[in-house]
Write a protein that binds this DNA or RNA. Structure first.
Lengths: 213, 213
DNA sequence: CTATTCTAATTAAACGTTTGTTTAATTTAA
DNA sequence: TTAAATTAAACAAACGTTTAATTAGAATAG
């Protein structure tokens, strides 16, 4: 039989760390926990990453780099109307934040502590860059007289905040939406389409220039 | 001069814990940190609260009990229209979550770890109870043909999520809104009214039966 | 093809701190 | 005099990290 050890041990450690950090927090997770979960010797973590802190940085950097260009591409796509861009934006973020909610969880926890200012700055920089790009989409829609004047920054906050709220207070919303908390698939199958529909409807009402000022 | 020791030591410890838990997380804060910040001997924490964990429970319980009846009162107030109730609801939650954001921070962090299931259940129960009450307000508005049919649960998520997003990613939104991060007063003075206006506008567009379906 | 060499991977054990909690003695105030 | 409040000291356990020894696997030489 093929030994599971054949997967790169570095990646094993990263996966174990992602899971445990999300469940128990950074400080609540010991390197011994991670080593045990990854079926790896304790010392391998220092060996590969240098320290527990550096392990977290590696995790964040790697998981972030995955999808930075997507927003730029969407933003610059001339074939899409401003309305279509908003819809695709919602689809993208709902999909991304629901399926990667463990990772977003870690980032939020890390962002709300004053431990490593480097990590916080990294997150701020990337998020700011993304938000500026979305701002551009809404401004374009306003220039074309499709969207009415709104508080753009807080509109972004409503889109991201709605998704973040449902995903990060998962237990609460499973209760509220009457979803089985334990079944990951049925959770996604209910929450993802429902979030997409709600947010598109919300933004249509909020942004449409035909609605009351 | 009046010695600051005259304030109840229990309360000193609670305040120090609230601040440090919010800044550094539960596991990131040592009881020695708390004792030092509260100008209290290390052993006083076990003496008063029994343990670090019980200290957190005391903190959450005490801070929660403060405002449970308010929602019930608002919900049952016959002199207010459904629209007015929504507005007051927004005012209340914006005010509450921005000024007590440290406490909400702790709760979020605690909610997203699987340490104490008791605390998580406590939070779930209270929040669920509150959300059900707000649901009632929207359902009433729909019965009176003031509000159109919407996804009520996710509408609640949008209200709470917007506020939570802005307050919990504070550094990011200070950047985005061009507010001085260090000055607490100017932060509140900008963010609170702006959140209120935005959310009322958002809900007016979203809920008004006169807008497109 | 075997034997040797060398580097990277892996390990168990130990390091010095820091952790939350307890103890036993002392001070305070009624 | 008595009980509560407060203290410094000590406790064992857990922490992140390092060490020094061993194994594995490919490269090199005969």
């Amino acid at each position: 039989m093929t030994p599971p050890d054949k997967i790169d041990k570095r990646e094993q450690i990263l996966q174990a760390a992602e899971q445990l950090f999300a469940e128990k927090g950074f400080d609540g997770t010991s390197v011994r926990d991670i080593a045990h979960e990854a079926n790896v010797n304790l010392a391998m973590i220092s060996y590969y990453f240098g320290s527990k802190e550096k392990l977290l940085e590696s995790l964040i950097e790697q998981r972030f780099r995955i999808s930075i260009g997507i927003l730029e591409e969407l933003s610059n796509d001339q074939s899409l109307s401003a309305w279509e861009k908003i819809d695709r934006l919602i689809d993208y973020y709902v999909e991304r934040m629901v399926t990667n909610r463990r990772f977003h969880n870690i980032m939020n926890q890390e962002y709300n502590t004053d431990r490593s200012s480097e990590i916080k700055d990294l997150i701020t920089r990337i998020k700011l860059q993304n938000l500026e790009r979305i701002k551009g989409i809404i401004v374009d829609g306003q220039r074309q007289k499709l969207f009415r004047p709104v508080d753009i920054e807080l509109t972004l906050g409503s889109i991201m905040g709605t998704i973040a709220q449902v995903t990060s207070l998962r237990k609460l919303y499973c209760n509220l939406l009457q979803i089985d908390n334990t079944d990951e698939a049925s959770y996604s199958n209910v929450v993802i389409p429902r979030l997409k529909v709600h947010l598109k409807q919300l933004m249509r009402a909020h942004l449409d220039i035909k609605n009351e000022a």
